[in-house]
Amino acid sequence: MLETVWFLLWGILWAVYFMLGGFDLGLGILSPYVARSDTDKRIVYNTMGPFWDGNEVWLITAGGVTFAAFPTTYAVMFSALYTPLLLLLFALILRAAALEFRSKVEGKSWRKTWDVVLFLGSFVPALLFGVAFANIFQGIPIDADGNFHGNLLTLLNPYGLLGGVLFVLLFAVHGGLWLAVKAEGDLSVRAGRVAGQLWMVLLIVAVAFLAASWFATNLYGNYIAYPWLWLVPLVTVVALVTTRLFMLKAAWWKAWFASCLTIVGATLFGVVGLYPNLFPSSLNPAYSLTAFNSSSSPLTLKIMLVVALIFVPIVIAYQTWSHFLFRDKVTSEDLASDEAY
């Protein structure tokens, strides 16, 4: 029971990270295509200014919870995915530097360099998260001792790459909508338009991914066994379509919220399908790491549950307040402030 609760919480933490980190990663991916002038670029940076740091803590918590609740999974997953994880880390580190450093120095080549870093530092993590999760959905070649039999190229298989492209598109649309909400004038219009174009591609890739999952993974097993679970993918698809409907009405806030729901739904679709596996083995199902054979002791799970039940609602409360506080568009007046990126 405790294991199942933590499995769900684990999935929710990833879902929230993708929902929040997703818009700032998406902004980084879209920036070269929608932001033309230096002012445009600064607006892109500043729309995520107060948030990106708090967003990233959801990733740290997701990682920490994997370690604390499922230490064996954490150990095997992180060492098996060694190269992609380190690439991801470098990308995130350089990206943070880009956000913090870019506007602190005048000079075209300085700023241009960091703009490229922001793009790569956003694109690479989005792609790798998708590749990693898709590979987890279809199983990883690990043996009974959790040793990984493969390399980075093993993970870059067609289904894995499809997952990567799906994540890049989900985040790019999400970031585009955020910019449509937060920017003014032309930039907002361009962001909304690009988000709309990408949404079309996203729809095709999402359908392809759902279809490919039928053949490449066992994700649908749980849905066939418990048909009420179909609600999860159903809500996700409805949210994805609703996102577009709101976009057509230029209701950007609503479209962004629908996009949030799409990302959470998409993540949970995978997580629910995966249960009870956390890190399935493609060599032999008996080697798979599950919520039950890789979990911490009941005492640790209980203590963490108490902490999570008290503090996570508080975190949600103050992060929501922060979004409320910075609900306005980013204006040129904001850029003149001394603290602006």
Binding site: G54, T61, T300, F311, V315, S322
Partner: peptide, 24 residues
């Protein structure tokens, strides 16, 4: 991990969120 991991996870939940959100 049963002992060590929980300290890291609790650190993120109780402290790191607070720090990173309020610095913004």
């Amino acid at each position: 991990g049963d002992v060590f991991g929980s300290l890291l996870a609790i650190e993120a939940t109780t402290s790191f969120f607070l720090e990173s959100t309020f610095i913004g």
